[in-house]
């Protein structure tokens, strides 16, 4: 159980770190991210927690993709 706790916390930290550069601002990202984690704080079933971790990892990948795409598009527009 404690290893799962670790994974969740690590993901939360990673997401917050990513959120610092979120286009709509850090407070926007943080409140929503925090709420999403808080909503699932009461989960006790292991498979449910794993599902939650999966979902957080997916969101993390999406945010990363969002950043690299915006950067690529901006560069492409400027330099072709």
């Amino acid at each position: 159980m404690s290893t799962l706790r670790h994974e969740v916390l690590a993901l939360y930290k990673d997401l917050l770190y990513l959120g610092r550069r979120y286009p709509l601002g850090y407070p926007y990202f943080r409140t929503r991210c925090h709420a999403a984690f808080a909503r699932n704080a009461g989960l006790t079933d292991e498979s449910a927690i794993r599902q939650g971790i999966e979902r957080a990892a997916f969101v993390k990948r999406e945010v990363e993709a969002l950043y690299s795409l915006t950067k690529y598009r901006a560069m492409k527009k400027r330099y072709g």
């Binding site: 690590a10 930290k13 990673d14 770190y17 990513l18 990363e64 950043y67 690299s68 690529y72």
Partner: peptide, 9 residues
């Protein structure tokens, strides 16, 4: 290429 993200860890 597509640069990877420098992760916190």
């Amino acid at each position: 290429n597509t640069p990877r993200f420098a992760t916190l860890p």
